[in-house]
Amino acid sequence: MARLSKQQQAEIRLKIINTAVELFTENGFETTSMKQIARAAGIGDATIYKYFANKDKLIYGYYGLIATKTTEQFLAEDDLSEYSLQEKFQLLIDIYLNNFLPNREFVCDSINMIMQSPSILFKDVAPVREEFVDLIANLLNDAEQAGEIAQSPFTDATAKLANDYLLAVLLYWVNDDSEEFSNTTQMVDMSLELGVEILRSGIVSKATDLVSFFVKAHLFRFMGSGFLNKLIMKKSFGL
């Protein structure tokens, strides 16, 4: 039997994920078996395990697929360099949620399941949660170089925080029953404006400088008074 190419493997993997999402939505996660998914996808009962070890991995695969698709679509956008930082974040969120929209029922059910049993997918979801960190870090670096936001020594930490913000938006969206998700739109508009304004102000760096100043000032004062040495001696030797 000829060995499958990477493209063929990717197509089979995609078919398995899409089939699983359909069956999970129709029949429920618990009542759907790996064998049912394999047969509905037109592959062997044992073949499916070469791609996914269990149903939990299939859910992880779906979210990973959406994250990759979102990143590719975002980077393929025309005239992206002409967008402001806020517009770029808005675009990223719009693409992200739109990719979930066709399977919103499954997304709601799977997220509720994860939230009820956070340990079930914690290890596997972690890489998906970090999918956008590098992309966001690049957006922040570009904005800093363009003078759009203040320079910060904590760009990587800010990128991780912004990445978690995307997850928070998703959680808000799955629980939004307003017409055309207007509440989500309003929440994103206000929070993005506030977030970008904070980055422009440089308050993150200023707060860090302030903390650093107090730490150093008090540290030197304690060292000068001999308090720190006495504390070390007491902790080390019980003096």
Rank of each mutant, 00 (worst) to 15 (best):
M1H: 10
A2G: 09
A2V: 12
L4S: 12
Q7Y: 10
Q8G: 05
R13C: 01
N27I: 06
F29Y: 15
F29H: 11
T32V: 05
M34E: 08
M34Q: 07
Q36D: 11
Q36A: 14
A41L: 02
T47N: 11
K57T: 12
Y62Q: 00
L65R: 15
T68Y: 05
T70N: 04
T71H: 12
E77G: 08
D79S: 12
S81W: 08
E82A: 15
Y83D: 00
L97E: 00
N98L: 07
F100I: 06
P102F: 03
F106M: 02
V107R: 02
C108K: 04
I111N: 01
N112A: 05
M113G: 15
I120Y: 08
I120Q: 15
L121T: 06
E130S: 13
A143Q: 02
A146T: 13
I149H: 05
A150K: 05
Q151D: 14
S152F: 03
F154G: 04
F154Y: 15
F154L: 14
T155I: 13
T155K: 15
A157V: 14
T158H: 06
L161I: 10
A162W: 05
Y165Q: 02
L166F: 09
S178D: 09
S178E: 10
D189N: 10
D189Q: 04
M190Y: 08
M190V: 10
E193D: 10
L194I: 07
K206M: 03
V211P: 00
K216M: 13
K216V: 15
R221N: 13
F227N: 10
L231S: 07
I232R: 13
M233Q: 15
K234D: 06
